Amino acid sequence: MKLVIGNKNYSSWSLRGWLAAKQSGLAFEEIVVPLFGEDWEKHQQQDNLQPSHGKVPVLWDGEAVVWDSIAILEYLADKVGRDRFWPKDAVARGTARAMVAEMHASYQALRSECPMNIRKRITGGSFSEECKQDIIRILTLWAEARSRYGGGGPFLFGAFGAADIFYAPVVSRLLTYGVAVPGFAESYMQAVWEHDWMQEWIAAAEDEEWTIQQYDTAQA
């Protein structure tokens, strides 16, 4: 398999696709395409980004081409078994799927005001009321998942899975922008941040030389 991703420092959707590929346990080749760089338009026209219309991440598996992070996760779950990604308990699995779907489709204020930037740390930033409500909603979901289903481990549903994959970029955002969180959330964020795969991604992000100016000046 081949996985096409954007800059590790900035691309939250790429992080989700990459973590999903890691979670699958399958071998894959990683292809990094710097977003908005001088060669971005050229890369968009190349076969390895079609028919995704230049979006990342993109997973190639033989003749199968899958883009969009949630589609990649579901495709891989079909290949290796859904229990690798989702809770075995039907009730917990339903909650996990709802949380992943909400993350995939919502929180526009948080996304726009706090773009992912792993290398950056900001203190004293201000947030719109809409962004604050997004954060409160996420923390509420985390609290429910941890209290109801998290007894088997430090992650949202105990073991690391699809919900953690989709909320990992949120963990990064909350750390970057210095958002104060309750103790249970701080413990969960630490577990995600210290996960071996996250540490691998973070180290690669810190080594990247590419910069995207509009993301580096956000909340400055």
Rank of each mutant, 00 (worst) to 15 (best):
A191K: 02
A180W: 00
F127I: 09
I202H: 06
A185C: 10
W18C: 02
A98P: 02
R137I: 00
A203H: 13
D47E: 15
M198T: 15
M1I: 00
C131H: 04
I212D: 00
N48C: 12
F36P: 01
W201Y: 14
A92R: 02
H195A: 13
E200Q: 14
F155N: 01
P34I: 13
G37D: 14
E29F: 07
W86C: 06
L19E: 10
Q213L: 00
R137Q: 05
P51I: 10
Q213G: 04
A77P: 11
S106M: 10
V100L: 11
G17M: 02
F184V: 12
L73M: 15
S172I: 12
A71N: 13
L110D: 01
W201L: 10
Y75T: 08
D134R: 06
E113T: 02
F28V: 15
K132Y: 04
E129P: 01
I136A: 15
R111I: 07
E209Q: 12
F28A: 05
R16K: 15
G161M: 09
E41I: 05
V56G: 04
G152V: 03
Q23H: 06
W197Q: 02
I5R: 04
D196K: 14
D68T: 06
R148N: 13
I70W: 03
P169S: 06
G6K: 02
Q190H: 14
I31D: 15
T217I: 12
K79G: 08
A191I: 02
G81S: 04
W193Q: 09
W142V: 03
V32N: 07
R121I: 13
K120P: 05
S24T: 06
K120M: 14
A105N: 14
P34G: 07
D196Y: 06
Y75L: 09
E206Y: 10
